[in-house]
């Protein structure tokens, strides 16, 4: 298209004039290196124990609930309890080994996004249960993709997002999550990936924190493993 060549031409012409000294304002060896910058960012923890501690601390600050459970059966029992106390009539999830084994004993009707339900139906469920690609200790985030975690809407449309993860999915930092994405999907990443850090929130009215602005009001993260 001509628009492309015209604009890129203007960019090239503009860049043909060298920058004045001092405009760059940054110099020094390795200053551009994001792997080196790891040490400058918030720390994710060196050991699995430190990571879990960090993850729990940040999640608590964000008012997300984290439960560490010994096995899949315990996760299933926890969900059954949650279903009772919250009065779930219908939930939504997606099929994979982890969700299948945790949800198998749950006595609540499940809408599977693999069957591509309509938006109106998905909007009616009380909770969305998803797996994740990874958990991030550095930021207390849940890393999801559209391909691996039941699509784009499942983790944002229902009022309660429940994440089922395993302890070995806990990564130190965001950089490790991007490495994982490349490793797992190569040159063809899912069309949607997201770092979910706490429940949906807003401070647009007088800077007062309100949870559940548009997305989930609650975020519960179940971590299975010892």
């Amino acid at each position: 298209m001509s628009g492309r060549e015209e604009i890129l031409g203007r960019v090239r012409e503009a860049l043909s004039v060298p920058s004045h000294a001092g405009v760059k304002a940054v110099s020094g060896e390795g200053v551009r290196d994001v792997r080196k910058a790891r040490g400058f960012l918030p720390d994710g923890g060196a050991t699995p124990e430190a990571r879990l501690k960090k993850f729990r601390k940040l999640a608590a600050k964000l008012k997300a609930e984290v439960e560490v459970l010994p096995d899949l059966a315990a996760a299933g029992a926890f969900l059954a309890d949650l279903a009772k106390t919250e009065g779930w009539r219908q939930i939504a999830s997606h099929r994979n080994d982890l969700t299948n084994s945790v949800l198998t004993s749950l006595k609540v009707p499940i809408l599977w996004t693999d069957d591509e339900p309509g938006t109106a139906d998905l909007e009616q469920v009380e909770a969305g249960v998803t797996s994740c690609e990874a958990l991030i200790a550095q930021t207390g985030s849940v890393f999801v993709t559209g391909k691996g975690c039941g699509g784009r809407a499942l983790s944002v449309l229902p009022p309660h997002h429940v994440v089922i993860a395993t302890l070995d999915q806990l990564l130190p930092d965001m950089l490790a999550a991007f490495d994982l994405l490349r490793e797992r999907y190569g040159d063809n990443p899912p069309s949607f990936v997201s770092f979910i850090t706490g429940a949906s929130r807003t401070g647009d009215i007088e800077r007062i924190l309100v949870l559940g602005a548009h997305g989930p009001k609650r975020l519960t993260i179940l971590i299975v493993g010892n």
Partner: peptide, 30 residues
């Protein structure tokens, strides 16, 4: 992390999402 911290004082905002296309084969929505 710089955007979250400098912009709002949060170490990261609630959602940081990357979108690389319309719904792709094998995806359930989008």
């Amino acid at each position: 992390q710089m955007l979250g911290t400098a912009g709002t004082g949060q170490w990261l905002t609630a959602y940081n999402s990357m979108i690389g296309g319309p719904r792709q084969p094998g995806e359930v929505d989008g």
